[in-house]
């Protein structure tokens, strides 16, 4: 499986990387703008990501904006709604409003509250039918 992790905090990034290694390979970028470019690149190379892990609070471009842009790009290149890449938002407890925004309007698949634990990721991947229980 191919994951894209978008997270500006060094420690959280390393943690996600280490956890995700169990299920696949993982590219890492540090803000929303880089995420969009990485997403485009993956499509160009016809190796799109299976799941995006997107932090909400980030410099330059935040997670929700990046998510909206990614959905736009998907529409532009003619991807059906059902085939959209699943996006899991990563959030600190303090921003539930942002989560709801991403969840209902941005089309995020779900969210994980920091600190991220192995079980959280496993649960999400199972929910997305990417792994079996």
């Amino acid at each position: 499986m191919r994951f894209l992790v978008v997270e500006d905090d060094f420690g959280s990034r390393r943690l996600l990387q280490a956890l995700l290694r169990e299920w696949g390979t993982c590219d890492v970028v540090v803000d929303g703008e880089e995420a969009i470019e990485a997403f485009r690149l993956a499509w160009e190379e016809t190796a799109p990501y299976d799941v995006l892990f997107l932090d909400i609070m980030m410099p330059r471009m935040d997670g929700q904006t990046a998510l909206k842009r990614i959905r736009e790009i998907e529409r532009e290149i003619g991807i059906e709604e059902l085939d959209q890449v699943p996006v899991v938002m990563i959030t600190a407890l303090e921003d539930p409003k942002n989560v709801i925004e991403a969840y209902y309007r941005g089309g995020a698949a779900s969210y994980i509250v920091k600190p991220v634990a192995r079980e959280d990721i496993e649960t999400q991947l199972m929910k997305l039918d990417l792994i079996s229980g």
Binding site: Q17, D27, V28, V29, V30, E33, E34, E37, A38, R40, L41
Partner: peptide, 17 residues
């Protein structure tokens, strides 16, 4: 070499942008 790979990936992205 994951650390190096990560940096080079970000370098690719930054070059494209």
């Amino acid at each position: 070499l994951s650390e190096l790979s990560e940096h080079l990936f970000r370098l690719m992205i930054a070059l494209r942008r």
